[in-house]
């Protein structure tokens, strides 16, 4: 399965924004289709659900939704395909997947408490770092 993805050649440039858009959707679909394999090879069943992983992939794509240059989209798409290849080929380890796609940028200790707006700048900085 994984080697079928490796054989994918670099496609020629997208002629238009529309073509690039279709390619992105294709990439998203292929990523979604490999989610069961990823869950399996990285033992992710007890930490994450397929829908969470899907949402994580979607948010990575949506992060670049403002880009309209088809060349840039092609480049990003290429990077995405490469990343997916690496993941599916087990070129990564479990903590890479967990760190990057399960925990994400929020960090381990999530600020789930009330976001108190009354705090001074000192306290807000204090919660962030020692150096301010």
């Amino acid at each position: 399965m994984s080697f079928t993805l490796r054989s994918v050649k670099v496609a020629p440039n997208s002629a238009s924004l529309e073509e690039a858009r279709i390619r992105v959707f294709d990439f998203f679909r292929s990523a979604c289709r490999s989610i069961p394999t990823i869950m399996d090879i990285y033992n992710l069943d007890d930490v994450v659900t397929p829908s969470q992983l899907r949402a994580s992939i979607a948010s990575q794509i949506r992060k670049n939704c403002h880009i309209t240059n088809p060349k840039v989209i092609d480049m990003l798409l290429f990077k995405g395909i490469e990343e997916l290849n690496n993941v599916v080929e087990h070129a990564k380890q479990r903590h890479h997947i967990i760190g990057q796609y399960v925990v994400g940028s929020g960090g381990l200790v999530q600020d789930v408490g009330t976001k108190d707006q009354a705090n001074s700048n000192f306290l807000k900085n204090f919660y962030e770092t020692n150096y301010f």
């Binding site: 705090n119 001074s120 700048n121 000192f122 306290l123 204090f126 919660y127 020692n130």
Partner: peptide
């Protein structure tokens, strides 16, 4: 965190904010 910063932050959370930042 630095010692004085911890107590300064605690004072604010406890509602007796110290006047230095």
């Amino acid at each position: 965190r630095d010692d004085w910063k911890i107590i300064r932050a605690l004072s604010e959370v406890a509602g007796a904010r110290l006047p230095y930042d």
